[in-house]
């Protein structure tokens, strides 16, 4: 008998009588003030939110704040003239080791915890939002949902090879519980919230 057969047979013998799977759709009812809560949540976990009207405002902010000399990468076609544009997933992940700023577009964002959701087609190269020194994410106001339940409801059965929630800058408190931002991932997270 293979280990697979051994394990499956032991599990089958030992598992209790079938218990029903509870409904979770009732949890979709939660109602909170979405954009305000998102801003508060993200700020609490070390991110910053910049309110903008359009992509031109984002470009102006980048020019003003994401200073040279630096390598900027974007996966957002509207920003092609202010950063290196990656349009597909052909880049070697190691070639991104010196990226200072990555600007990406979120699929959705969550009010209760300040997280944004991006799937592979929005980041092109999986390692991009992690290896960059600083991360900037464009979020449209209408893409913010109240809680994780509505987030998964929107994600539904979408297909992706990789996708992730990102909530604020990378952090650790492993040394005597002192919070330090910039562990292994991005040192900062800026959200451009488009009205």
């Amino acid at each position: 008998m293979t280990s697979r057969e051994k394990i499956l047979s032991a599990v089958k013998t030992n598992q209790p009588e079938l218990a029903t799977l509870p409904d979770v759709d009732f949890l979709l009812q939660e109602d909170i003030d979405v954009p305000e809560k998102f801003i508060a949540s993200l700020t609490t976990i070390g991110g910053q939110v910049i309110m903008v009207e359009d992509h031109d405002a984002i470009k102006a902010f980048i020019a003003e704040n994401f200073k040279h000399p630096s390598r900027k990468i974007t996966t957002v076609s509207e920003l092609v003239d202010v950063a290196e544009y990656i349009e597909d997933n052909s880049a070697n992940p190691h070639s991104l080791e010196n990226v200072d700023y990555a600007i990406i577009q979120a699929d959705l964002a969550i009010a209760e915890n300040g997280a944004i959701w991006v799937s592979e087609d929005k980041i092109r190269t999986r390692v991009l939002p992690f290896i960059t020194q600083h991360l900037a994410v464009i979020v449209r106001r209408e893409d913010i949902v109240p809680t994780m339940h509505q987030a998964y409801n929107k994600i539904g059965s979408n297909d992706y090879g990789f996708a992730t929630f990102i909530a604020g800058p990378s952090k650790t408190a492993d040394i005597e519980q002192s919070l330090v931002l910039g562990a292994h991932g991005a040192r900062s997270m800026t959200v451009f919230l488009i009205n």
């Binding site: 949890l27 997280a115 994780m148 059965s157 992730t164 800058p169 952090k171 991932g185």
Partner: peptide
Amino acid sequence: RKHLGVFLRLLTRSATGQPITTYSSHFKR
């Protein structure tokens, strides 16, 4: 997949009091 909504809300609040971990990565392929 939708059950992740329940567990990811519980996990980090219980662990450290954060609303969610910085990264919750979904590896599919």
